[in-house]
Design a protein around this nucleic acid. Structure first.
Length: 313
DNA sequence: CCGGACTCCTGTGCGC
DNA sequence: TGCGCACAGGAGTCCG
């Protein structure tokens, strides 16, 4: 089968003259901006908090790599029980909770993962698909639970005995963080593969943090066809792509997850993500720049939308 | 080594 | 109304 095959249009009767999306845009997939936003909203609760205990409900999702030889920690301790949280770290789409001088838990949300802090007096949210619960007491003595939920189980948690282990075992496989990627490093990453640039952008070992949504958006903004072989991009294209990636991620972080949901456009319509996504989920709708119908495709097993005129390859 | 295909998993939305 | 099916997606693994 070809890597390029036509994809069924999204929403057969989607309004052609409107930016409003129909079915595609109800959920924001966790990519780099969502993880950065999550980090910022969790920090006030978690920094300095004490982890009292941990319930590991789904061992296959909450993974405990082989401990370093001579490490005597119990499973509870390896999941930070008895430790204070010192800092949160993000690289690409992954978030690490680092305890003071001790164990680290790295969380990857996959497609449907959620990590939430719920103060004890609040109602416990949906218990289904909860894989790990940490009982926590915040710095200002608020008791609560940190809950990892992931219906589809594409995400998971990984425990490490130290931040050094996390970097050595897991984060060393990731490319540079997309939010701060330099043109030079992007050129280096893309130059070493003949794969299509859309596919290359999604490869976390080349560039960490770009997922399907922002890949399409960045390519559109940079006026680069997703079908260009990565190592065939010229210097100008790479520079535009780097700028587009950084700008789009930064803007998405500024928009900050929840505020997006409340967005209203000038006409007072409750627009949603469609207001920010110029191509993603808009196959067969008109390009916002030239009016040409956007082309939906599958590239490397991923749905892709681009403008055949603005992004001529 | 490289790149493409397959796999995991479940909620959703559509057609019959 | 309800059933069954196709589909979405990140990333590890497998294979040519």
């Amino acid at each position: 089968m070809s890597i390029l095959s036509p994809m069924r249009p999204v929403g057969p009767d989607a309004p052609a003259d409107s930016l409003r999306c129909t079915t595609q845009d109800k959920a924001e997939l966790p990519e780099l901006p969502e993880i950065e936003h999550l980090k910022r909203t969790l920090e006030p609760w978690l920094l300095g908090a004490r982890v009292e205990s941990c319930r590991r409900l789904t061992p296959s999702v909450v993974r405990l790599p082989t401990p370093a030889p001579g490490c005597p920690r119990t499973v509870q301790a390896r999941l930070m029980a008895g430790h204070h949280i010192d800092r949160l770290r993000r690289h690409g789409k992954q978030l690490a909770i680092v305890s003071r001088g001790g164990p680290v838990v790295c969380v990857h949300l996959g497609m449907t993962g959620e990590l939430r802090f719920v103060p004890r007096q609040n109602r416990v949210p949906d218990r289904r698909h909860v894989h790990c619960i940490w009982t926590i007491r915040t710095r200002d003595d608020t008791p609560g639970h940190l809950i990892f939920r992931d219906p589809r189980r594409f995400g998971g948690c990984w425990a490490f005995d130290s931040e050094a282990d996390l970097h050595e075992v897991r984060w060393s496989r990731l490319g540079p963080d997309a939010l701060t990627i330099t043109t030079r490093n992007l050129a280096k990453a893309l130059g070493r593969t003949r794969r299509l640039v859309k596919t290359a952008l999604l490869d976390q070992s080349l560039l960490a943090g770009v997922g399907n949504i922002y890949a399409d958006e960045a390519l559109f903004r940079a006026r680069v066809s997703p079908l260009t072989p990565a190592n065939a991009l010229d210097q100008d294209q790479i520079q535009r792509l780097g700028r587009a990636v950084r700008l789009i991620l930064r803007r998405a972080i500024e928009a900050g997850g929840s505020t997006i949901r409340d967005y209203r456009d000038a006409d007072g319509r409750s627009g949603t993500f469609a207001n920010r996504h110029l191509v993603y989920g808009r196959g067969n709708q008109p390009c916002v720049k030239c009016g040409t119908l956007l082309t939906p495709l599958v590239v490397g097993q991923r749905s892709t939308v681009y403008c055949p005129v603005c992004q001529a390859g």
